[in-house]
Computed example of a mutant assay.
Amino acid sequence: MRRIAPLAAALSTTVALSACAGDETLRGFVPEGSVWRLTEIDGTAFAARATIRFPAPGKIAGDAPCNRYSGNQTAPYPWFRAERILSTKRACADLSAEQLFFTALGRVTLAEVQGDVLILSSPDGPVMVFTIQP
């Protein structure tokens, strides 16, 4: 019994540490504090300014063309799912670009990080290409 107790304690500690080992969402696969600017949607240049960042595990935030937003993203990488997106309610001349941005963000399901490029996509939907801001 003496041998089992230390082994059980060691296994318990190992399981607890591996569960906390890292963020499995996209945030765990991009440079900490990085801000990504949207450059195109479906191969078309995105002229308005929109960004995404990953401020905490399971969280997204950024600037849409008119408003700031935040939300949840809890799918493990390479999956992506933006949920419970909240935004401010300012009006501006880029509201149509903002609607396009939020619609695409709500439909993407996959993420891929290639150096300073982040691609959010869906097999049947939009492809959003972001580049890291210096």
Rank of each mutant, 00 (worst) to 15 (best):
R2G: 14
R2H: 11
R2M: 10
P6V: 15
P6F: 05
L7Y: 00
A8R: 00
A8H: 00
A9T: 08
L11H: 00
S12F: 07
T14E: 02
V15M: 11
L17T: 13
S18C: 11
C20P: 00
A21W: 14
G22K: 10
D23Q: 06
D23S: 09
D23V: 05
E24R: 09
T25E: 04
F29Y: 12
F29K: 15
F29E: 14
P31Q: 10
S34F: 04
V35Q: 07
V35A: 10
R37G: 03
R37F: 00
L38V: 07
T39M: 12
D42P: 02
T44I: 14
T44V: 15
F46I: 07
A47T: 15
A48I: 10
T51I: 14
T51K: 00
R53E: 13
R53W: 03
F54G: 09
P55R: 03
P57Q: 12
P57W: 02
K59D: 04
I60F: 01
G62A: 04
G62I: 10
D63F: 05
D63T: 11
P65D: 09
R68Q: 14
S70P: 01
S70M: 15
S70R: 11
Q73M: 11
A75V: 10
Y77E: 02
P78N: 09
P78R: 04
P78Y: 12
W79E: 11
R81N: 11
R84N: 15
R84H: 08
R84D: 10
L86N: 03
S87M: 13
S87L: 06
K89H: 07
R90H: 09
R90T: 13
A91Q: 12
A93C: 00
D94V: 05
D94L: 06
D94R: 14
L95M: 15
S96Y: 08
A97Q: 09
A97W: 08
F101P: 01
T103A: 15
A104F: 08
L105R: 05
R107F: 00
V108C: 06
V108N: 09
V108D: 07
T109I: 03
T109P: 03
T109N: 07
A111T: 13
E112Y: 02
V113Q: 02
D116S: 14
V117T: 15
L118Y: 02
L120C: 05
L120M: 05
S121E: 02
D124N: 14
D124I: 13
G125D: 04
G125H: 07
M128Q: 03
M128I: 06
V129K: 13
V129N: 02
F130L: 05
F130K: 01
T131G: 03
T131I: 14
I132E: 14
Q133I: 15
